[in-house]
Design a protein around this nucleic acid. Structure first.
Lengths: 127, 127
DNA sequence: ATGGTTGCAAATGATTTGCAGAAGC
DNA sequence: GCTTCTGCAAATCATTTGCAACCAT
């Protein structure tokens, strides 16, 4: 049976507030502001159990060696900017082929490229 | 300037032949059959440079802690079976929204669920 | 000959685990 | 009171790196 602890609720709160896909380390640093003695392993353990419960999403980006965590408010996909390393939420309709011969339970799409802000910077530099 | 070495071509050959997305460790074990003294770090170094050159793809699946490598013959997406942990290629047309305000260079979709073989097994068990 | 490449061992970085004490139920 | 959860430190796992020898150009 899962127990309600202070550290678990702090971590959930941080995930709910933080809209930019934090890493375990980042969550740990924020959590310490509320509870200075919280340990990194508790953060990892809690994140893992939240993922297993299906309450949050674990996202791994190629090239990055750490996982990021996402508290999803509604169905969305992600855009990863290879310049600023930002992981941006994308909402909208996605159409996938329906002739897949397997039982599809979840679809994750990640778009990779350069985000509009970095693109703007690139163009400004050229002037 | 990139040099043509025995280890690099062995690794490329293995990737070309192996159609099931091997890990670095698996590639290393196969490579040793051709070249017993090849080192794991050479395998990692070579894979990294191939990824950087864009010749192969690095794929990270949530839950798995190691990367897999894919030598893509043609544009395709992946299906990951959470039962047998197989990563299966999917060919076909995918439609994505075209109103994304960023510069999209690459799209990666991964479908997660239970593959048709595992599904069959599940059903057989129920009988 | 020169400089990229390798093998080895040691280092790193992210994440996990063993254990004894603390805290939920 | 029993059991899960935590903090700490040590362990693990995948991957990277320093370095001297090696080999392709």
């Amino acid at each position: 049976m899962l127990r309600k602890t202070k550290q678990r609720s702090i971590i959930m709160d941080i995930l709910r507030e933080t809209r930019n896909h934090p890493t375990a380390e980042e969550i740990y640093l924020k959590a310490r502001l509320y509870m200075p003695k919280i340990s990194l392993s508790t953060v990892y353990r809690t994140l893992r159990s939240l993922v297993e419960e299906g309450k949050i999403l674990e996202i791994k980006v190629f090239g990055e060696n750490h996982a990021r965590y996402d508290y999803p408010l509604e169905q969305h996909q992600h855009f990863y900017c290879r310049k600023c390393k930002e992981l941006i939420d994308l909402y909208g309709d996605f159409y996938y082929p329906n002739n897949i011969p397997h039982k599809v339970e979840e679809i994750r799409t990640i778009f990779i490229g350069v985000c509009k802000d970095c693109l703007k910077e690139e163009n400004d530099e050229k002037v």
